[in-house]
Design a binder for these strands. Structure first.
Lengths: 209, 209
DNA sequence: GTCTATAATTAGATAGAC
DNA sequence: GTCTATCTAATTATAGAC
C-alpha cells in the first residue's frame, strides 16, 4: 500500500455521482446542497470539487450519461426486421431500460429546467435522437402499409409518454411483473398504430361531438 | 380614499399566488426564494407573510387549488351517456383543461416531492379521484361490451400519461390547433380501448418475441 | 398594509494544512 | 486525496416603525 490512508480516488468519484443521482432525483437539484452530497459519500464538501468543477456540471454529466446509455443500449438491442416487430422491440426495450434506472429517468425528465441553456440544448438533442428512433419505425410502418397513423408526431409523442409513464406507478412485487407489463403495453401500442380492420363503427361514435 | 397609500390587500394576495405559480413552475420550488416572489409582485419579502404562513403553504395552496379546479371542471363537463362518448369527452376535456393552464399542470406534476408528507397525501388523494373518473368510464365500457381492455389500471395510466404528455410539446400557433390535437387523441384513445375487430393478425406479429 | 432592519442559518466555492 | 477553515452571498422568517 503505497497509497495514503483515505486516498480512494477510484471509488470516490463514482460514489459522488451515485449519491448526487439519488439525492437530486429524490429531492430535486436545487434542494440538495453540495454539503449533503458530501455527507452521503462520507467526505467533506470541498472534496467534491476534486471530481466536478461545480454543481451544474455534476447534474449535466449525470443527465448526459443517462441519455447516452439510452441511445447506446437501443442501438445494440435486437430489433427484428418488419416495422411491427421493431415497434414491439422498442416498447419492450423502453419499459425494461427505464424501469431498471428509475432515478436517472426521473432526473432526466424533471431537471431539464435546472440546466443552463447550453447544457439544456445538448441534452435536448440527445432526447430528440431517441424520439426520432421511434418516429423512424412508425414512418417505415406507414410506408409499408402496416400501420395506420393519423399524425406521425402525435403518435410518437403519445407512445413515448405512455411508456415513460410506467415509471410513475410501477413497483416491483406488485400485481404484474415487468415482462407482463411490457406485453400489455405492446398490445396497447399495437392497437394505437392500427391498422384499422373494417369500417370501425365504434370509432364513429367516439368521433361525435 | 380612507385607505393608506400602498394598501391593496385585495389584489396583493392574488398577485402573490400568480407570481409564485409562475416562478415555481419555471424554476422549481426550491430554486425560487421568497425575495424573488416579492420582487416580482413589487413588495418586500416580509409582506408575503401577511398572505401565507410559509413557503410550503404557498406551494400546497397552489397545487390544491389546481386539483380542485380540475375535479370541479370535470364534474360540470357535459359527458354524454354511452361509455365511448364519455371517453371522448374525457379526452377532449383533459387536453383542453390542461393546455389552458400549463404552469399549474407543470407544478402539480413536478413539485409533488417538495410537499411535506401530510400535504403530499392530500394532493395525492385528489389526483386519485381524477384517475378514478377515467377508470370508471373504462369499466363501464368493458361491462357494456364496448371496450376491450387487457388491464384496466394500465389502460387508465396509459391514457392519462399520453394526454398529459401533450403539455410537454404543444405550442400555440403550431401546425395543429388545440381542437385538432384533441380529435386526433380521441381517435388514438378509441383504438387503444378496442374493441378488436376481427382476428387481429397484426397484433399476433407484434406479440411475437 | 407595507417597509426597514435584522436574526439565524445555510449556500457554493476556495485556500492551505497534512 | 482529504480535511479544516473560511469567504461571500443568499436563505427563511420575524420584529417593530410608520
Amino acid at each position: 500500500m503505497a497509497r495514503k490512508t483515505g486516498s480512494r480516488a477510484e471509488i470516490t468519484g463514482p460514489l459522488i455521482r451515485r449519491a448526487a443521482l439519488s439525492l437530486f432525483s429524490r429531492h430535486g437539484y436545487a434542494a440538495v446542497s453540495m454539503r449533503r452530497i458530501a455527507a452521503e459519500v462520507g467526505v467533506q464538501a470541498g472534496t467534491l470539487y476534486l471530481y466536478t468543477s461545480d454543481k451544474q456540471s455534476l447534474l449535466f454529466e449525470l443527465m448526459r450519461n443517462h441519455m447516452e446509455e439510452l441511445l447506446t443500449a437501443w442501438s445494440r438491442e435486437p430489433k427484428g426486421e418488419e416495422p411491427p416487430a421493431r415497434l414491439a422491440a422498442f416498447v419492450r426495450f423502453h419499459i425494461r431500460f427505464h424501469l431498471e434506472r428509475p432515478e436517472a429517468v426521473f432526473l432526466a425528465y424533471m431537471e431539464l429546467r435546472s440546466l443552463v441553456p447550453e447544457n439544456f440544448a445538448r441534452i435536448e438533442a440527445l432526447r430528440q435522437r431517441y424520439e426520432d428512433a421511434l418516429a423512424d419505425i412508425l414512418r417505415a410502418g406507414i410506408a409499408a402499409g402496416r400501420f395506420q397513423i393519423a399524425d406521425l408526431r402525435l403518435a410518437t409523442m403519445s407512445i413515448i409518454a405512455m411508456l415513460t409513464g410506467v415509471n410513475t406507478w410501477y413497483r416491483d412485487g406488485g400485481r404484474l411483473s415487468r415482462e407482463e407489463v411490457g406485453e400489455i403495453y405492446v398490445e396497447m401500442v399495437a392497437r394505437l398504430v392500427g391498422p384499422d380492420r373494417g369500417a370501425a363503427p365504434d370509432l364513429g361514435v367516439l368521433g361525435e361531438r
